[in-house]
Nucleic acid binder design. Sequence first.
DNA 1: AAGCGCGTCAACCGCGGTTTT
DNA 2: CAAAACCGCGGTTGACGCGCT
Length: 275
Amino acid sequence: MGWGIPEQGWTKGPWTPAEDKLLSDYANLYGEGRWTSVAKCPDCIHIGLFLFVLSGLNRSGKSCRLRWVNYLKPGLKRGQLTPIEAGIVIELHALWGNRWSTIARYLPGRTDNEIKNYLRTHFKKKDRSPEKKEKGTKAIIPKQKQPPQTQEQLPQENDMIKRAISCGNSTPSDHHDQQITTESQGGKEMFFMHHPTNLEDQCLPVTCQDVAPWLDTIREDLCGGPWNLDNHPMGGMDIDHHDQATAAGFSCGRVNSIDYFYNEDYIFLEGRSCI
DNA sequence: AAGCGCGTCAACCGCGGTTTT
DNA sequence: CAAAACCGCGGTTGACGCGCT
């Protein structure tokens, strides 16, 4: 099954730092996408330094690719998904089902494996605790939820993308860019969304406030979940109070009469009430 | 302190699609 | 055009760490 040559004799199991280094050096020098070459080349393809060096990398092409894509590739983020990322994952999973790699394309620096693990973990949690604790209209997003849906509702139902597209100006994009990239602009993270199918030449900047409508969509599922308001940095304060939130270092936004406050770690959504 | 259960994450496996020969 | 090789995806598993009893 493994790509490359021998079915037997490949090294398996956890990668060592030395192997990582070899693979990184190889990928940086020769680029991605020649994984079987990495695997088989020690004595036949590449010359010079790598002829010697790669002889220590007895991994299948598949294994090399996986390690690179999920761990070594530059630009990968580590650690927990941010609330915004989690929200995007949840909504896209609701739209597309278990198309991990497709979902991952919308989250720069995140891998399909990571998203798969994240959702499996959280669905499993949810399956085990069917009862929901009623928490009123407030919600903290970091963890949870959303039942898997069938794949019938596919891209044409992608109103999230339609909404996002409708609220920004299109600008040409480089095809080498990821479908969403982020960068800091004026201290605020900007999302550059790239339509997956038929708007390949359009890329638009979307601010955090533009992302919020998606959260509005998932909010119905998030509210009423077992949110723990005791552990968040605002200590269970009434987040309807704009001044308190901003004083606590949160940025704020408002969509469809829903106010929300966010920082790097949390998003607070409040009910439909207005300030 | 030890055992157990659970959550998380890295890695493997099998399959299907695409590209190359 | 067919077969082989390659690549990527999604599902699954196992190791490890942490918290609870």
